[in-house]
Simulated assay, not measured.
Amino acid sequence: MILVRKNSSLLLGFLAGTSKISILLPPTNLLTPPRLFTTKANDPSPKTPFIVKYLIDSLGLSSSEADKCSKFLTHVKSPSKPDSVIEFFRKNGFTDADIKRIICCNSKVVCAKIDSTLKPKFEVMGDLGFSDTQITKLITANPLTLNYLSYCNVAPRIEFYNTIIDSKDDIIKAIARDICLLTCSLEKTIKPNIAFLRECQFSNERISSLLIHSRRVISRPLNTLKSIAKRVDELGVPRESGMFYYGFLSLCRLNSDLFDAKIKLLISLGFSESEVLSLFLKHPLILCLSGKNLRYKVDFFVKEVGCKLSYVSCHPFLLSLSLTKRLIPRNYVMELIMKKGFLKKKIDIVNFASMPERKFLEKYIVSFQKRMPELPDVYLSASAGIFLY
């Protein structure tokens, strides 16, 4: 539906310019007081622990969430400590939903001391130049970071990350995505890994991207990164090539068994070994797609579009495009335009599938609308999985 709304807004812009029991019982049992026959369901339930009731009433946790959190809080018998912690978070800009998330992830925080534990953690981040909003985003995104926000732990790391990542917002994103950036050794792991990536001719921009967007890459053992780089070398991707970075990233996301399984899958779908290698060399991240995704897309290109696998291997980026949001609706509309005789010759899917949405709308929807007024609705419906013709 998001896509439909987006397409719809673009189209509007252009167009504007779902009793037997007694027989079974021995006679002696008939004299037994009825209370002994009461079912377990009628027995009074054990008293709900204070902290469980507190978490349910104060933060709206479900019974199961409160039970899970209470395992480490059985000693809490009074609301004074958790009340003060919750109030502290509220004063620092956290919503009740944020606080609920933090406590569900790190329940021991309700016992934290405000002045000696929580305040210093917020102050050190503020002293390092982070705004209240940024601190809130970090802790909400990954509540476990609260355990590691001490000056001696954070200050040298932030100072180092500042040399690679341009903005404080991106540093927050990196740490929130990979808490190991705060837990593993800066001197023994992070810095040596960064130095190795520079040996691989990765630019500062690409190292920054790995830090921000890729979980558990920079924080891996150095020998692991060296092994991955060596395998990319063996696959024939030169280190000076821009594709080496993407090949490296692809193998970081796939262990050896998964990588081999994807290769075997593509071969089972009909690609030759040379075509599979071509796919990897031109678009390494294709192998990170799920097997189901790959099967559906290959089936679409071969059976619906009529492409040969050699064509797909020459244009592997096609496999990275959304099947339901882009490939199917665009191909459907293009076939309809052809049937109506609006085009003299068939357009290769690589040409119209690669277009930005605005350009596709201009060239093939709006321009043919006079001859086929329902075309915008046809395209929007196809984008929603509804085919009118």
Rank of each mutant, 00 (worst) to 15 (best):
P221W: 05
P221L: 04
P221A: 04
P221G: 05
L222Y: 03
N223H: 13
N223D: 14
T224C: 07
L225C: 09
L225Q: 12
L225I: 12
S227Q: 08
S227H: 07
S227M: 09
S227F: 04
I228A: 07
I228S: 04
I228F: 04
A229L: 09
A229V: 11
A229H: 12
A229G: 13
A229T: 09
K230H: 10
K230N: 11
K230P: 11
R231H: 01
R231F: 03
R231Q: 06
R231V: 00
V232Q: 10
V232K: 12
V232T: 11
V232R: 09
D233A: 13
D233M: 14
D233G: 13
E234D: 14
E234I: 10
E234K: 14
L235F: 11
G236S: 14
G236K: 14
G236D: 11
G236E: 11
G236F: 14
V237Q: 01
V237R: 04
V237H: 03
P238A: 15
P238W: 15
R239C: 00
R239F: 00
R239T: 02
R239A: 01
E240I: 11
E240V: 13
E240M: 12
S241Q: 04
G242T: 13
G242Q: 11
G242A: 13
G242C: 09
M243V: 10
M243C: 05
M243N: 05
F244C: 01
F244E: 03
F244L: 02
Y245V: 00
Y245S: 02
Y246R: 14
Y246F: 14
G247Q: 02
G247F: 04
G247D: 06
F248W: 11
F248Q: 15
F248G: 08
F248D: 14
L249W: 10
L249P: 10
L249Y: 09
S250N: 05
S250L: 12
L251I: 03
L251C: 07
L251N: 06
L251A: 06
L251M: 07
C252Y: 08
C252N: 11
C252K: 09
R253A: 06
L254F: 00
N255M: 15
N255E: 15
S256D: 15
S256A: 15
D257N: 13
D257A: 15
D257M: 13
F259Q: 03
F259W: 02
F259Y: 09
D260F: 12
A261Y: 08
A261S: 12
A261K: 12
A261P: 10
K262V: 05
K262C: 01
K262S: 05
I263P: 04
I263A: 03
K264Q: 02
K264S: 06
K264C: 00
L265T: 11
L265H: 03
L265S: 05
L266F: 03
S268H: 12
S268F: 01
L269H: 04
G270T: 01
G270K: 04
G270S: 02
G270H: 01
G270Y: 00
F271D: 01
F271T: 02
S272W: 08
S272T: 11
E273C: 05
E273Y: 03
S274Q: 07
S274V: 12
S274M: 08
E275N: 08
E275W: 07
E275D: 11
V276H: 05
V276P: 07
L277M: 08
L279N: 00
L279E: 00
L279R: 01
L279S: 01
L279Y: 00
F280P: 08
F280S: 06
L281A: 10
L281W: 05
K282W: 03
H283R: 13
H283E: 14
P284S: 10
P284I: 04
